[in-house]
């Protein structure tokens, strides 16, 4: 039995169904992300695990114990809120020690644990500050320490980095991951930032409109999206309509140009319409792979480490990523150009 199990969870607010048919097994020590657009039910699911909302139907078990209707203060789960939610009337040390204090722990023990936590988040000398004297990033670290101080069996983070600016976000996210590894604590992390989910997680749950779209490792989610939603939500993707020429051999036509796919259209009748997904980074301007498409350069955008080139076939607009380097020679806008890519770069979407 898995450490955390969500069985067939459903949550209704009045007549609105916020979450449905949610099934998930999380192993001890695993780092799982919920990824999805705003309003898809990530927070609601997390709040049900924490006990702030009760599922309309379904069960939640943690470490073999049924917890569906247990009060939040009896679950021993640590939670980090998007808006920090530090108690403004307490110092950093007071905040971190709060959970131990209400549990009736001895002052000396609290002090020791607080010091340990401050060390862990790298704010050892800020124990006596008040939350309003801290930066956003520091506040969120304290919130993390506060959640961890009670030695929770499960750590929940609800978009903990979304209120911070890009640079701090990067640092802190690595820090969260390393602390999580160090403590081996089972963690659920809610985010709508795919990069965050991909870089942090052992597994990702992609959600849309209250449903799970796909569960898998970042590698699986990114490279083998199972639904069109996942394909379009994770990474940038060219989604191209195509006509099957020969299903058995994987031959399809895009804007009248024929390409070959490695798999996926066995048994699809010839002449049928399918949708092909092409990752921009799988396409190349230099000769490589067996497929080629001819078009005109429509626009070129610098995105820092990569250069994104938009190429118009006939109807279809494809984007293509090249790594940026000083020796890169770029085609002129309007120039005719050829795109190369391997057989397995094209993916048929259901």
């Amino acid at each position: 039995m898995a450490f955390l199990e969500l069985n067939n969870i459903r949550k209704e607010f009045g007549r609105f169904v916020a979450v449905e048919a949610f099934n998930l097994q999380v192993e001890r020590g695993e780092f799982v992300s919920f990824l999805g657009p705003s309003g898809c039910g990530k927070t609601t699911t997390l709040r049900m695990i924490a006990g702030f909302e009760l599922p309309t139907t379904g069960q939640i078990t943690i470490d073999g114990q049924e917890m569906t209707y247990t009060r939040p203060n009896a679950r021993n789960i640590g939670m980090v809120f998007q808006s920090y939610a530090l108690f403004p009337n307490m110092t950093v040390a007071g905040n971190i020690g709060f959970g131990l204090k209400v549990a009736g722990k001895a002052a000396a023990e609290i002090k020791e644990r607080v010091a340990e936590m401050l060390q862990l988040i790298g704010l050892a000398d800020l124990g006596e500050r008040y939350p309003y004297q801290l930066s956003g990033g520091q506040q969120q670290r304290v919130a993390l320490a506060r959640a961890l101080a009670i030695r929770p069996q499960l750590l929940l983070l609800d978009e903990p980095l979304s209120a911070l600016d890009a640079k701090i976000r990067m640092n802190l996210r690595n820090e969260i991951r390393s602390i999580q590894r160090q403590l081996g604590i089972t963690t659920i992390y809610v985010t709508h930032d795919q990069e965050e989910a991909l870089s942090l997680s052992d597994r990702i749950v992609v959600m849309s409109a209250g449903r799970m779209e796909q569960v898998g490792s970042p590698f699986e989610i990114y490279n083998f999206p199972q639904t069109r939603f996942v394909a379009s939500f994770v990474g940038t993707l060219n989604i191209v309509p195509a006509t099957v020429v020969n299903g058995a051999r994987g031959e399809v036509q895009i804007d009248g140009q024929q390409i070959t796919l490695a798999a996926g259209i066995d048994g699809v009748p010839n002449g049928a319409q399918v949708t092909v997904a092409l990752r921009p980074e799988a396409l190349s301007l230099s000769e490589s792979g067996a497929n080629r498409l001819v078009g005109h350069v429509e626009n070129i955008a610098f995105l820092g480490s990569i250069v994104r080139i938009y190429i118009r076939l006939d109807e279809t607009l494809l984007s293509l990523d090249e790594f940026n380097n000083p020796h890169l020679t770029l085609p002129a806008i309007g120039a005719a150009t050829t795109i190369y890519f391997p057989l397995e770069a094209g993916l048929i979407l259901p």
Partner: peptide, 14 residues
């Protein structure tokens, strides 16, 4: 704020 109450509950406070 609602979060204060929830954070407190979450940390085991009644």
């Amino acid at each position: 704020r609602r979060e204060w109450r929830e954070a407190a509950e979450n940390l085991g406070a009644n």
